[in-house]
Every structure is written in C-alpha cells, then in structure tokens.
C-alpha cells in the first residue's frame, strides 16, 4: 500500500512535467488512480518500475528537469513509447488510441489547452460561444479560512 502510494505520487509528479499542467489540474481530473492502473496493466511491470525509478531521480534535479526528461524518457528508446502514451492519456484519455473510459474522454487536458470543453460534456451554457471563453487564471494564494463555525440547529 505504502509503495503503491509512493509510486502513484511519482507518477503524478512526473506527469506534471510531461503535460505542463500542475498537480491541482491533474488531480482535478479525478483520473490519477485510473491512469496509474492503466500504466501498470498495459505494460511490463519491470519496465514501469524502471520508469518510476528513473522518474524519481529526474524529479530530484528540478533545475534541469526538462533536459533530463528529454534525454532519459523521451529520447530513450526504452521509455519513449511509454512516455508518449502517458502524455496522450492525460491529454486525450486514450491508451494506444483506445478511450480508457467515458470519464477519461471527458477529462482530457486537450480541451483545457484549447480553451474549451469536451464535446458532449461540461457544456458552458446557452450563447456562451458568442463570446471568447472565460479563462481561469491560476489560483492566487488565499489565507486559510478562519476556524469554521459550528452549525447548530435549534
């Protein structure tokens, strides 16, 4: 369980740098566990384990991370297709061209990148298309809420 959590975390963190979206965006898709499962089930476990170990090392060198990803994951024949597939999965919700699940289609990052929504879901409402899309800017830090008031019923 512990190891699994650690691996999921590594998968999440390397996915941040592979997709260009931050942790909140990726977690917000609700797809992390499903996608991690797909990676596990669709690949040689030994390869996945090596991929995660390599990723962990790469994540330890944040200043050079893009160079490291390029050299060790993208340009590396061993990891290239796995890495590409992971990027495609986050963006399109597909693994090797097959849609993982109805939700994975809806949660594809490509719609966010194109400033739109997945066709057939998350509809923006009547007439919205007449105007440019509303761009959600990165959240600004907010002070933690004061101690929550206890609701009492009378």
């Amino acid at each position: 369980m512990e190891a699994n959590n650690k691996n999921t975390k590594t998968f999440l963190q390397i996915s941040v740098h592979l997709t260009g979206y931050d942790e909140m965006d990726l977690l917000g898709t609700g797809m992390l566990e499903s996608y991690y499962d797909v990676v596990i089930h669709e690949n040689n476990l030994h390869l996945v384990s090596e991929f995660l170990t390599t990723s962990e090392k790469i994540l330890g060198d944040l200043p050079n991370i893009n160079d490291k990803i390029r050299q060790q994951l993208i340009d590396d024949v061993k990891f290239n297709s796995l890495t590409s597939n992971i990027i495609m999965m986050w963006y399109m919700g597909t693994w090797n061209g097959n849609v993982v699940s109805p939700q994975s289609y809806i949660q594809g990052l490509v719609w966010k990148a194109a400033d739109t929504h997945p066709p057939g879901a998350k509809q923006p409402g009547y007439g919205s298309w007449e105007n440019p899309p509303i761009t959600i800017h990165p959240p600004v830090a907010v002070k933690p809420a004061a101690k929550a008031e206890t609701l009492t019923t009378v």
């Binding site: 993208i74 890495t83 194109a114 400033d115």
Partner: peptide, 24 residues
C-alpha cells in the same frame, strides 16, 4: 483534430509546457 494535433506534437517530441503552449 484535436487528437491528431496532440499526436503530431508528441511525435515531434514536444512535452510539458512547450506542448501545452503549442496546443493553446
């Protein structure tokens, strides 16, 4: 599109912020 655009960009070895900005 947009699936083919993502596919092509990934084939061209784009990833991370570069990929996202290209698609955007």
């Amino acid at each position: 599109s947009p699936g083919s655009d993502v596919q092509d960009a990934v084939k061209e070895k784009k990833f991370g912020k570069e990929l996202r900005n290209h698609l955007s």
